[in-house]
Simulated scan of single mutants.
Amino acid sequence: MDKSYPDITRNLSANLKHLRKEIPEVTQAFSGLAGAALRDGALDKKTKELIALGIGISTRCDGCIGFHTEALIKLGVTRDEFRDVVGMAIYMGGGPSLMYAADAMAAFEQYSAIPD
């Protein structure tokens, strides 16, 4: 496995910091959208993050896999919950999602190994 999801998210975070300076109105609006979408409602935050992970896998987005896996680890996701979402992403995304699901499991292992 050549990908390190903690490195991917760290590098993206640095790039996003610069992007926020370049287009602050757009990035602030996106942050507001994210905050509103993730607020507890009929679904709790963990369920919403699980959905986001599934979409990230099926769209083959490394950053999405990294950021949402990290959030899920912090929210106390279990391996069984994580595997169920990975399975649904494979079902919905076919072969390419199978490849990214393997990467998502690697991200789970990497973030699980980082002490709090």
Rank of each mutant, 00 (worst) to 15 (best):
M1F: 15
M1S: 12
D2H: 09
D2L: 08
S4D: 10
Y5E: 00
P6W: 01
D7L: 03
D7H: 02
D7W: 04
T9A: 07
T9M: 08
R10G: 09
N11R: 05
N11E: 13
N11C: 07
L12V: 09
S13L: 15
A14Q: 13
A14F: 13
N15A: 15
L16C: 08
H18I: 10
L19W: 12
R20Y: 06
K21F: 14
E22F: 15
E22Y: 15
I23S: 11
P24F: 05
P24T: 02
P24M: 05
E25W: 15
F30H: 08
S31R: 04
G32N: 11
A34H: 07
A34E: 14
A34R: 13
A34P: 02
G35H: 12
A36G: 01
A37G: 11
L38D: 02
L38V: 01
R39E: 00
R39I: 00
D40V: 15
D40A: 15
G41I: 02
A42V: 03
A42R: 00
A42I: 08
D44E: 07
D44V: 03
D44Y: 10
K45C: 00
K46P: 03
K46S: 08
T47C: 11
K48W: 09
E49V: 00
E49N: 01
E49Y: 01
L50D: 04
L50A: 03
A52G: 06
G54E: 03
G56L: 06
G56R: 03
T59E: 03
T59V: 06
D62I: 01
G63Q: 09
C64R: 02
I65Y: 14
F67Q: 00
H68W: 04
T69A: 05
E70V: 01
L72Q: 03
I73A: 06
K74D: 13
L75I: 00
L75C: 01
L75D: 00
L75Y: 00
G76W: 08
G76Y: 09
V77H: 06
V77M: 08
T78D: 13
T78S: 15
T78C: 14
R79T: 04
R79E: 13
F82G: 06
F82V: 06
F82R: 02
V85R: 00
G87V: 12
G87I: 12
M88G: 06
A89T: 02
A89S: 11
A89Q: 04
I90Q: 08
I90H: 10
M92Q: 14
G93L: 08
G94R: 13
S97C: 05
L98W: 11
L98R: 04
M99K: 11
Y100A: 03
D103F: 12
D103Y: 13
A104S: 07
A104Q: 01
A107Q: 03
A107P: 15
E109R: 01
Y111M: 08
Y111F: 14
Y111Q: 01
Y111R: 07
S112E: 13
A113P: 08
I114Y: 01
I114P: 12
P115D: 11
D116E: 04
D116N: 10
